[in-house]
Amino acid sequence: MRVVIAEDLALLRDGLIRLLEAHEFTVVAAVESGPQLRDALVEHRPDVAVVDVRLPPTFTDEGLQAAIEARGQVPGLPILVLSQHVEQLYARELLSDDRGAVGYLLKDRVFDVGQFLDAVRRVAEGGTAMDPAVISQLLAKHGDEGPMASLTPREQEVLGEMAEGRSNSAIAGRLFITEKAVSKHINNIFTKLDLPPSGDDSRRVRAVLAWLNNN
């Protein structure tokens, strides 16, 4: 899989390159600024890009802006955004084109190599990878009011896992239940939140995220 990396700190950039190359990814470009990232994304059209939010020369959210812009030019270009902090606003902006193939994770998530690589692959395949911090904030926002309150604790757990972008089998593995139980929970969630049923994993995740964002 061909990857573009954008990270301005050499230490982290080298770490990411080493990590990804050790797991059969090919890093086609590793850049360190916003303008370079814009060029690299359009030139290489990678299978997935791993992008730091804050990049030179402005040290503002240049990486995020470059990513959103590139997705405007190349719709659905898979991008995984990494940051030292998570903002609901950024997550919302990344998800707003409703094409999937986006991820937004805290840099700490790289520590868990297996899960991080899983997230990179998921995004490359058109799925979603949202940081647990984003999801837990979204869930907390709904608190114990509205339709969210009608979900059982187990269903809320499943909803959280699903919103992060995991597939049924991954959820089943993490919660130690069968895939069949997972899909039953998911059907209940969709009924209770009044969402149209969908067989497509990634479309389903987007529907849930849109619901959480807008309600």
Binding site: Q84, H85, L89, R92, K141, G143
Partner: peptide, 26 residues
Amino acid sequence: VRGIHPPVLVERGLDGAVRALAVSQQ
């Protein structure tokens, strides 16, 4: 860091930071 100077303020200025704040409230 968030308590000293929120990163979103650096990245988006007052306008973006207040919007980000509003989005994350209950």
